[in-house]
Write a protein that binds this DNA or RNA. Sequence first.
DNA 1: ATGAAAGCGCTAACAG
DNA 2: CTGTTAGCGCTTTCAT
Lengths: 331, 331
Amino acid sequence: MSIKAIKAQTGFSYSTISRVLSGKADAFRISTITREQILEAAARLNYRPNILARSLRLRKTMTVGLIVSDIQNPFFGELASRIEQDLRFHGYSMILCNTNEVPENEEFYLKLLVDRKVDGILIAPIQTAEWESMQILVRETPVVLVDRIFADTALPWVTSANVEAAEEVTREILGRGYRKIAFLGGPPETHITRARFKGFRKAVVETLGRLDESFVLSKGYTAQAGREMMIRLLDERPDVEAVLCVNNLVFYGAVGPVNDFELRQARPVMMAGFDIGEYASLMKRPLISADQNLAELARSAVGLLLEADAGAADAANHLTIPVVIARHRLP
Amino acid sequence: MSIKAIKAQTGFSYSTISRVLSGKADAFRISTITREQILEAAARLNYRPNILARSLRLRKTMTVGLIVSDIQNPFFGELASRIEQDLRFHGYSMILCNTNEVPENEEFYLKLLVDRKVDGILIAPIQTAEWESMQILVRETPVVLVDRIFADTALPWVTSANVEAAEEVTREILGRGYRKIAFLGGPPETHITRARFKGFRKAVVETLGRLDESFVLSKGYTAQAGREMMIRLLDERPDVEAVLCVNNLVFYGAVGPVNDFELRQARPVMMAGFDIGEYASLMKRPLISADQNLAELARSAVGLLLEADAGAADAANHLTIPVVIARHRLP
DNA sequence: ATGAAAGCGCTAACAG
DNA sequence: CTGTTAGCGCTTTCAT
């Protein structure tokens, strides 16, 4: 009823009105007087185009979906925020979907987004490989993986230099004289845990000759998992001197038990983790954080997706972003 | 092209196919054999309805927008997550918009959501009153305010019992013998800051007879603001004994300076704040946290919105949810 | 129990 | 420079 209303007011046709309203007046050399009348009527009637109708007609929604596993995690909060800003800069809106680390939700949202005819999907997947229905959906809509990725896939992805970062942090810990060093991981088959453990193991094996398996735990990416792993570790290996946590939440979960332990034993435990970022200032303890470059991760992911959307040949579509090591309260 | 494809395969008409596919087969007493053929063809062709077309036709998108000020804040992360779950339970999707505490973005997103024909909007506003263009937009789409609200508005809202919670926390601090107690607020004209300060002042004045204004600061809701306020407070009133922070981020920003101060002065400062939640376990310090009931806040907000969407008479549409006081590392 | 046809609001040939 | 018209994919009277 809306262009129609302007038509009723001004007497111009659908096409002319549509042209003026979507900024194509110049291209069609619409007369100034006509433009003015149309724009005036539009303003007066408070005209707003119906995006649904436009999208249906153009087969383009100017919307992309972002699927993350845990929006309560400030890491994903920042990632989502940055991606949204980048997308908005390019004229796209974002629909944010939160799977809460539940694999079934991943399929649900993927379908939802495809049904909504989004122009593309960014996903930090929970699952460890392309599942069946994903294969089908992906044929319709460009998908880019970010942060968490599948090891072997033709899909474009962008992730951090996880192996290198974990190795560097571990070497730093070893360089400070700690020997009994543990790793608290997420689900063992996930890319992030595998990559970070790989770097950790490399540094330990190359420095100490061997890795003591009783120092390696893996359970999940949540604070709850971190807490449980740490309690178990301190119980089974009370001689532990340092620990590397696979992500921020595992670190946050582990801190409590470590604090208690230190009080009882009067001996500090060195802690390190990924993406502690700002939250390092809450703690009085020394710590090392490998902070991913979220700005770059977001920018690259959006870049890859928009390229894919524009139908670009998938050239260099696998990107790895360096990680920055930050030392807190350390000499 | 999609119902059309099934039509081509089965020979049935648009109407019959549409009826079967949208579960109205019983109502129209479509014969079993027909249903089977249609469903079989749909499955084979991997049919998915075009939501855009359906929404355009039905004038209903089954989507609501949520506008928050800072999605990097785990508080809003949890709020968004809970609201999304509740909405999903009722069959709605959610578009999440992040204003980053920038007022202009608020208007931008409000327009965007209205243009997208969302069925309703939930918003935790930055601004302190209904601004002009909001008035217009709101005529088209139901809006419910959550957490941050406007003091005097006919719009439905749900918020926490902020005055009472702040008062209770302050009395608890005073009851523990602290006298020189400060308040770190957000922007002074915002509802949350006003309400929490009101409770704080009431407890202080009733207990001590008067409130020393040099213990009251207000700047913003970010960690940066919290840090700056705390540094200034410790500089100007180094005799301060306790501090109540208006929200979690202000608390997080304030912790660093307080830690340093305590080390220098060998005297502890009691800290309290809102919605510290899980993050309390990161810190070794005693603290008091007034934790909002996010589950209930989310549930109520969604309830009010769906009622408004259903066109219910706006009966009791202003809800206040109790807050829980949590003591950490305190006798 | 099924079909024909109109219309949601918009854009883009095509026509002048 | 402007207008006519078809059609995006779906739902829904109104017929039969």
